[in-house]
Design a binder for these strands. Structure first.
Lengths: 132, 132
DNA sequence: GTCCATGCAAAAGGTTTGCACAATC
DNA sequence: GATTGTGCAAACCTTTTGCATGGAC
């Protein structure tokens, strides 16, 4: 029950929702489901790889749907440290992914790691936060 | 006092210390300094750019000295999701930095951001955590 | 006296856990 | 009857804040 509700919320947004955001949206449709279940469900979804968990530095985790096997929606994040706005960008992704893949291989060998994931984020101030 | 003590601890380790780790080490030398001051000092040092603050996903922030102007010690992180071990790697750094710079320029223009920082991390399982 | 740094204790905030209860097999 | 999923409340842990004190100028 919780599983579908949470996945449904995540698949119908392009925002970066916190656990509480998700809880509130799920709650609209399933008023019986509590915050605890949302946390437990998210934890499970992250573990099985259906959902990614991010930290953008504001003290709460954000979640988004993992892209499908084709990886068509792969993107990285640009975070405004002023207002917290997050931009999904797909520019340069191909180059980045190529370099990341190469780096992953090198690091795997050298440090004997089974690398499963990477994180790239840029931080800065958006137009609105720079002016004043 | 706190300033020097915290910087001293950070400049004599290659580990990734949490606020409490730093507090404990500072406390050995300056038993009068409390955890609050360590947090306040770290906050200030991060703001003026002398210290970097990282999140490796275990719920507490880690701190390390920002590299000097020459940037000789620039590195990225490889994080074991099993035991939390963190490897500083410098391999591929030049290529990564070159691509990052290019990406930063492109993103700045396209999204009108003043980009101040970036983050690259790889996640995986280290040798010890893969075996069992 | 004013200003700034500080410790202590309490608060805050997000997340996790304990426990009892209901539904399922 | 055992197992599983659940909500509620409490606990937890890191970080922040309020307040009063002490030192520097």
């Amino acid at each position: 029950m919780g599983r579908e509700a949470v996945l449904d919320v995540l698949s119908h947004t392009d925002q970066h929702l916190s656990a509480e955001d998700i809880y509130m949206r799920v709650h609209e449709t399933y008023p019986a489901i509590g915050l605890t279940s949302v946390y437990r469900t998210l934890d499970m979804l992250v573990n099985i790889g259906l959902v990614y968990k991010f930290d953008f530095g504001d003290g709460r985790a954000r979640f988004e749907l993992a892209e499908g096997p084709k990886g068509k929606d792969h993107h990285h994040h640009l975070v405004c440290t002023g207002c917290g706005r997050i931009v999904n960008y797909r520019d340069f992704i191909d180059e980045e992914v190529a370099l990341l893949k190469k780096t992953e291989e090198g690091l795997s060998k050298k440090y004997n790691f089974a690398i499963t994931n990477h994180l790239i984020q840029f931080y800065g101030l958006c137009e609105g936060c720079r002016k004043p």
